[in-house]
């Protein structure tokens, strides 16, 4: 039973990872690409790791995959945040169809 659910979760995770990579190719600029890659890859990888835990049970590898979930959820958004901030500070422009950029407005206003 657990094996079946585990395999289903791993399949779902792979699908999410695939769509995250597809978003990386299709979306127009750094910030949108970060959105797709961070969200989909975090949830996809967490899903794969949880599937591994369900399949293996509380063994050495299973417990380690649970720990990996915690560290992944804590660190992946922080790194995305750092990349986005660094990109904006070094002058990467938003996509031409963007609606508003309050960050640039505030920086020019002497932040």
């Amino acid at each position: 039973m657990n094996e079946t659910i585990g395999i289903i979760l791993i399949g779902i995770g792979l699908t999410f990872d695939f769509f995250g990579c597809l978003g990386l190719v299709r979306l127009p600029d750094v910030y949108n690409r970060l959105q797709a890659s961070t969200k989909c890859v975090t949830l996809g990888t967490c899903s794969i790791l949880f599937g591994v835990f369900l399949m293996l049970g509380p063994t050495a590898a299973g417990i380690k995959s649970l720990l990996c979930i915690i560290f992944l959820v804590l660190t992946a958004p922080v790194s995305a945040h750092a990349i986005a901030r660094g990109a904006h500070r070094s002058g990467v422009k938003l996509w031409k169809g963007s609606v508003v950029d309050r960050y640039a407005e505030d920086k020019e206003g002497g932040l």
């Binding site: 999410f16 904006h88 996509w95 169809g97 963007s98 950029d101 960050y103």
Partner: peptide, 21 residues
């Protein structure tokens, strides 16, 4: 995730991005 995936697989790419405060 489902929201982002729907945006990605739609051929017309319905995004309307920007940075808000």
């Amino acid at each position: 995730n489902i929201d982002v995936i729907i945006r990605i697989i739609r051929p017309d790419l319905p995004i309307n991005p920007g940075i808000v405060k």
